[in-house]
Write a protein that binds this DNA or RNA. Structure first.
Lengths: 247, 247
DNA sequence: GCGATCACTCTTGTATACAACAGTGATGGG
DNA sequence: CCCATCACTGTTGTATACAAGAGTGATCGC
């Protein structure tokens, strides 16, 4: 299989989406090379592809970093998703009952994850809903775009979205399915728009602006003294592939 | 400036959009390296980024090729554009007179290019209209997506779109602006949808399916014997940068 | 004459070596 | 005690070397 080339790429995305890498976190080429047992060349190529996809960025001769979107960039990502997903819903010609059934099942999984209060799985699933919605359009180009964009915003939500917002999101998903099932495309599009707006409104930008996030997490396990939206001392597991994020 | 890194990337895109590279054409790493006066490493990295953006593809140990979309892939690209641009138009809140003025000016340029019968400039400008429309949304993420997607379809149109369709396209652009100016967003979206459908319908897939396109162009300058949508013996100029395609 | 085999070439795939620079801590002067 | 300078370390940036496979043409057997 040719796809062994982008094993690293997928693995990094999976790690980000699973919360093992946090925004702003540094990735060192040689370390990754050691972990995967390959040379820097391949790691570097994978990172460059991820850069194109907006997942990582490089600071000259300093290192690679998981993107830490500014408030403005975060807004742009959410707005882009809104535009594209509205277009997607508006372009739906017929709603297959089977597709609805699948998505309903997915929303149930979301609910389960919410009650298990597993932040990573929860936010991941909430993003996956949108990807699956795009998937049933049957257009790989669109699916990839939505998938990448969702990964970006998921990365934001994972750190800055309070738990309460997750439940709300899942309910929104249910309402969107209701509208779709009823064949009310316009209403589904409207709900989608409101939904993404709500998700964006739910994130706490004040935390994001602060460049000392990592430090805060280390210094404030006891809460109270330092304001922290979602402590979640992530990024303690090592990388170790687990090529989960496939398509 | 850091952007010197992707000079190669931009240059290749420019060459493709200017018709100096045709779909299916082969790119040899070492040749490009020689032309740009750098090592294969940098060329390779640029090509990989272009691969992520859907402009080139690689066949293991055979070479890099400008993408030659299959009928199915072409359809997916057009459909993706339709979905996204419908979403874009539908999301427009207010139409600035200044923006309309700029776009009107652009459409005039299109007309000029059509009468000059310059295939490359013509098709390029027709694509640029959509990019500029996306630009005035002020969202760099969306602009990049539309830009990449437009590049892909432009690449198709350039080879397979008959001249008559270009005039029709430009008229469509005018109508879309009319609707926008009148504040009739829904109508603008509808027109956009029809427009992209028309563009797609205008391409001649029968030529595209044929893998001997290059041969045909060489053997049939006199027409008649070999069917050819747009002979346009392109790809005779060498690369030579001219970093025209900026954003 | 025709087909299969083989050697050769061309090109990518991968690793490694070295250059260039940012960041950091030590050292020395005031 | 504080600040500037300097050497050092760590990391990316770039080039080069070599491995591996695809394609091609010649050669050989029939």
């Amino acid at each position: 299989m040719v796809s062994e080339q982008d094993e690293i790429e997928q693995s990094v995305i999976a790690a980000v989406l699973a919360g093992r890498f946090s925004p702003g976190e540094r990735l060192v080429e040689s370390s990754l090379a050691g972990l995967y047992g390959v040379s820097r060349t391949r790691v570097r190529e994978a990172l460059m592809r991820l850069q194109t996809r907006g997942i990582v960025e490089v600071s000259a001769r300093r290192g690679w970093f998981i993107v830490r979107p500014s408030a403005e960039e975060a807004h742009a990502a959410y707005q882009a998703r809104k535009v594209i997903e509205i277009g997607l819903v508006m372009s739906i010609r017929q709603v297959l009952p089977d597709a609805i059934r699948q998505l309903r099942h997915h929303v149930e999984e979301e609910h389960a994850a919410i009650h298990d209060s597993n932040v990573n799985a929860r936010v991941c699933l909430l993003g996956d809903f949108h990807v699956h919605l795009a998937e049933l359009f049957g257009n790989p180009v669109l699916t990839k775009i939505v998938s990448d964009l969702t990964a970006r915003t998921t990365l934001i939500s994972m750190l800055y979205q309070p738990a309460a917002a997750a439940e709300e999101s899942s309910d929104d998903h249910g309402s969107i399915l209701d509208a779709l099932e009823a064949g009310d495309i316009a209403r589904a599009a409207q709900l989608m728009s409101e939904h993404i707006d709500r998700v964006e409104a739910g994130i706490d930008l004040s935390v994001m602006r602060d460049p000392l996030d990592g430090l805060r997490k280390i210094l404030a396990p006891g809460e109270g003294l330092v304001r922290s939206a979602a402590p979640q001392q992530a990024a303690q597991n090592s990388v170790h592939s687990t090529n989960r994020q496939t398509e």
